[in-house]
Simulated assay, not measured.
Amino acid sequence: MAEEAHGGGIQIHPMDQFVVKPLFGGDTVHWYTPTNVTLWMAITVLVITLLLVVGSRGRAIIPTRGQSLAELAYGFVYKMVEDVAGRDGLKYFPYILTLFMFIVFSNLLGLLPMAFTTTSHIAVTAVLALAVFVTVTAIGFIKNGPKFLELFWVKSAPLPLRPVLAVIEIISYFVRPVSHSIRLGGNMMAGHAVMKVFAGFAGVAVVAPFSILALVAMYGLELLVAVVQAYVFTILTCVYLRDALHPSH
């Protein structure tokens, strides 16, 4: 966490925890190299499978804790999709549920000691955001055809302002995957970096009690952020899906 510098001070390296490392030695990372990122992504998928498939396969009238958690997640996301995207959006519910479960468990598993938070890397969140962007854009054109372009034409505005607003709408539309990915990745990276700093100062006798208290508080906050960021990513996906299904202003 912290190490003594040559000058007698303490050096803390909060960003070291985000370094991508090959699992089987070496320093070179190719596209096919198993790394700590791919390991924890696989663990995340395994945990989700155990919860949603194994944990709920009994379908007991009095559910177990695993089945209750699976049903709670299912109902929560289903209600979100129905309320935001409408009944038409429910056919895309499995995709949105998969997104939510992957992000929330990636965030939560990243809080375990010695774990790796895959959603702290923009490379991961950018792929998720681009997948959403391409998917909803394709749905918009497939379902509405050229009428999907009405999303950028604000009919309720005065006619002279509509071209200006159209340019603003187009820019904001193509910025969506950028903000969608940076919001999630930035929040996870910042929180973990702050926790690493507090943990580093825990080895300094003078400030150790305060550092530990701050670390405990920050850990609790990060638990909340892990769930909230998964919720924000998912509900924005529902909003984008609603725009694709019903593009008219």
Rank of each mutant, 00 (worst) to 15 (best):
I142Q: 11
G58P: 03
Y92W: 15
P63C: 14
K196M: 09
L112Y: 01
V204D: 11
Q17A: 14
Y219G: 11
T44K: 13
F152G: 09
V227P: 08
D16V: 13
L90A: 07
L165S: 01
L223R: 07
V232W: 07
G7Q: 04
L52F: 13
P247M: 09
S56E: 11
L109P: 03
K147P: 05
L51S: 08
Q67Y: 01
L128C: 10
P160D: 00
E169D: 01
W153D: 00
L223C: 13
L39G: 03
T119Y: 03
A166V: 05
S181E: 07
L112H: 00
T98F: 15
P158W: 03
P14T: 14
D16Q: 15
V132P: 00
M1C: 10
V20I: 15
M1W: 10
F116T: 04
V84N: 03
L245N: 03
M101G: 02
G191D: 09
A202T: 12
L245G: 02
P158G: 02
L99K: 01
V134Y: 04
M114V: 10
L241P: 04
L46M: 14
A226G: 03
Y74D: 07
E71I: 02
Y231D: 08
H121N: 08
T234V: 05
V19L: 15
A244M: 09
F141V: 14
H13G: 00
F141L: 12
G55W: 05
R57Y: 12
I182M: 15
Q17I: 15
P209R: 01
V134G: 04
T117V: 06
G58H: 14
G9T: 10
D83C: 02
I168T: 06
S156E: 10
F93A: 04
A126W: 11
K143Q: 13
V45A: 15
P22D: 13
L184K: 05
L159W: 02
V207K: 06
S106K: 00
L130Y: 10
M101H: 06
M101K: 02
L151T: 07
V206I: 02
A42F: 13
A138P: 00
L159D: 03
Y78L: 10
N36T: 10
F24S: 09
V232P: 01
V204H: 09
D88Q: 04
R176F: 06
H13W: 04
V136D: 05
A190S: 15
V216R: 13
V53D: 06
D88I: 00
S106W: 00
G86R: 06
P34T: 09
F152M: 14
A202Y: 00
T49I: 13
G9V: 04
F201C: 08
L99Y: 14
N144P: 05
K79R: 09
A166S: 15
G140M: 04
V77K: 03
D88E: 09
I103A: 05
T28W: 02
F24M: 14
L90H: 05
K79Y: 05
A244E: 06
E4R: 13
I43S: 05
T33W: 12
P163Q: 02
S172P: 04
K147G: 14
R65E: 12
S181Q: 13
W40M: 14
A193F: 01
L72F: 12
L72N: 04
Y219E: 01
